[in-house]
Design a protein around this nucleic acid. Sequence first.
DNA 1: AAGATTACCGACCCTATACA
DNA 2: TGTATAGGGTCGGTAATCTT
Length: 296
Amino acid sequence: MSSPDLNLLLTLDALLAEGSVARAAQRLRLSPSAMSRALARLRDTTGDPLLVRAGRGLVPTPRALELRERVGHLVREAEAMLRPAAGVDLRRLVRTFTLRGSDGFVENFGPALVEHLRAEAPGVRLHFRQKTSKDSAPLRDGTIDLDTGVVDAGTSPEIHTRALFRDRFIGVVRHGHPLSNGPISPARYAAGRHVLVSRQGLDRGLVDEALQALGLQREIASIVDGFCAALALVSVSDLISAVPERYTRNLRGHLYSFALPVTTPEITVSMLWHPRTNSDPAHKWLRDCVRQVCAQ
DNA sequence: AAGATTACCGACCCTATACA
DNA sequence: TGTATAGGGTCGGTAATCTT
């Protein structure tokens, strides 16, 4: 069974509003004959004559009178739905956005972001979710609204991305740690005991590759799946960790940071969103907020 | 005479089929 | 798998016809 032609709703609206085939035709820029045939299709679809001859003109049937107001509302509603979205009223916006970020995103950027949103849109709530994988499916199905992280070959091609900031890895130890005094050579750095951050559970990373190029090797004493855990371990032990500088700025207040004695590639942290939300004015505003907070 | 309807025709779209 | 073609269906226009 085929669904009815919804274009007929526009025809019905014009016919019932005008009460005349000729005037309805004029309104929809059709010939009277085309409108007459459209009326015939409507009669066939609804099973009601809708407009019947009365002298030279037409008069509505009870069913037509019943439909007149309803179809009018329906058409206005549909037209409004298809118009480009107007700007969003931030003071009255009530909405929850779900943001996904790697370990440390909330701790580092969350406070500024929440404050920024509170000032502009007090009805907006943020739901921060931990990034346990790079899977794009939650963006696609709307489970999360905005993702942050490093874009790589595994990122789905349809996903929109925008760079937020570039970052570089630095070394971190507790204050009073031997490395907090004096120059740090690659050999001196490699001689310490290290904590490696790896979400995938790998046992070596970029720093190990850089050390290997110099003929050095470090001892990985511990592997954790997030920067917060690494910094927590570093703060109460003699372990050494390498973390992104900007990404962990607010988390290293009581720790000693230093430039790594080896060169590691810079990373670009981006935000990622699905094309479905690209034109949504509220989502646009959220992206702008995240961009501003991360640029500070 | 005015407005509604119908016959006929062309344009367009969709689908099935053949073929490279 | 992609492209070309034929056939059928739908819809709108013109012109003619019908109804009041």
